Simulated assay, not measured.
Amino acid sequence: MDNGGLQAVLPTGASFLTTPNIDHLVLPVESLVGARKRWQELGFTVAPDAFHPFGTSNACVFFSDGTYLEPLAVQDEALAGQSITAGNCFVEKDRTFRQAGAREGFSAFVLRSTDAVTDDERFRQSGISAGNRLDFSRTVVDENGSASVASFRLAFADLDSSSFFAFTCQRVNAALPTAGPSVEHRNGALGLGALFLATEGSRGIENLATMLGVHVQEKDHKYVFPLGNCDVEVAMEIAPELDHTPRYPTGLRGIGIRFRVRNIAETRSVLQEASIPHQSSGERLIIAPAQGQGCIVEFVQA
């Protein structure tokens, strides 16, 4: 597949007058206890456990740039199964990921949206809809212990992969923390820098291009989609020592996440203090996946 082929499938029109931004990343884990331990060892502040009304739970890591990580566990298998039967695309995709052979990993990115209804219509018209839109509400507790009800709308895009998916998220009345203790991290993390995906063939990349609607850049055997707050890089070739994901026949899969930090020396000190094995490459620190952290983590100086 060449760059011209990708450019040919990029949609045009008012939907893409602004460059999309990453909202958050979905990281399936076996347990929130293990995930919390690992991400705290890496120097991140982890929010209290929260629960979805469809059988899953999370323990999020928030950043001052308005993005966050969502380590995701299955809290109630029976309820999750009922939700899938009822057409819940989020839980269905999570189960598909887990059943494909990955106990933990990086399963999805989520775009920030102001109108998930329109997103859903666009995906359907473009032939990349992955299923029904999901509208739901849940109780959230802020840093002061005050509880409120937050509502969300999600629209799903099909990336033709059993190991990776994507959707948009409209926060109907749910604010994200961008200041305060919840976004202050010992490792100095400020937010996302890049997302690393990989595939052995072209499968799913056209759908990804259609969903993102940005001009793709081709370099060094990879395609780079520059978003407003983060790059999405899709490698067509990846060094075996860096690829810790289960082997799938074809299709996109999540490999790793790059974080921007305020001081790389400060970050290195945190890793050394916790005895976290890591590689150094210039101004980058690279950590292989471990229990509770299902993908590569990379830190770079902001």
Rank of each mutant, 00 (worst) to 15 (best):
G5H: 12
L6D: 01
L6T: 02
L6E: 01
V9A: 10
P11A: 05
S15D: 14
F16Y: 15
F16V: 09
L17V: 14
T18S: 15
P20W: 06
I22A: 06
H24Q: 09
L25W: 03
L27I: 04
V29Q: 05
E30G: 15
L32V: 02
V33W: 01
R36S: 13
K37A: 09
K37G: 00
R38S: 15
R38M: 13
R38T: 14
Q40P: 00
E41A: 14
P48Q: 14
H52L: 04
V61N: 00
V61C: 11
F62G: 05
F62T: 05
S64E: 15
D65Q: 09
T67S: 14
Y68R: 04
E70T: 12
E70W: 07
P71D: 01
L72Q: 04
V74Y: 07
Q75W: 10
Q75Y: 08
D76G: 01
E77W: 03
A86Q: 10
G87F: 10
C89S: 13
K93N: 11
R95G: 00
F97L: 01
A100G: 11
G101L: 08
A102K: 07
S107G: 05
F109T: 00
F109W: 06
V110S: 04
S113I: 05
S113T: 07
T114N: 12
A116G: 04
T118W: 00
D120C: 11
D120H: 15
D120I: 01
A130W: 01
G131H: 04
R133N: 03
L134P: 02
D135G: 06
F136W: 14
F136G: 08
S137Y: 04
R138Q: 10
E143A: 15
G145R: 09
S146G: 02
V149W: 00
L154H: 02
L154N: 07
D158G: 12
S161F: 08
S162R: 07
F167E: 05
F167S: 06
C169R: 04
V172C: 06
A174R: 12
L176S: 09
L176A: 05
P177E: 09
P181H: 08
P181Y: 03
P181F: 03
H185Y: 09
A189Q: 07
G191F: 03
A194H: 09
F196Q: 11
L197C: 03
G201D: 15
I205F: 06
I205Y: 05
L208N: 09
A209W: 02
A209T: 13
V214N: 11
V214L: 12
H215A: 13
K219H: 10
D220F: 08
H221L: 09
L227A: 11
G228L: 10
N229W: 02
N229I: 03
D231R: 10
A239G: 02
D243Y: 12
H244M: 06
P246C: 05
P246F: 04
Y248T: 13
G251D: 07
L252D: 03
G254V: 00
I257W: 00
V261H: 06
V261E: 08
R262E: 15
N263W: 08
N263I: 06
A265P: 00
T267S: 15
T267M: 09
T267I: 07
R268Q: 15
S269I: 03
S269W: 02
E273Y: 09
A274K: 14
A274M: 13
Q279T: 11
E283V: 04
E283S: 13
L285I: 13
I286E: 14
I287C: 12
I287Q: 07
I287R: 07
G292I: 07
Q301M: 07
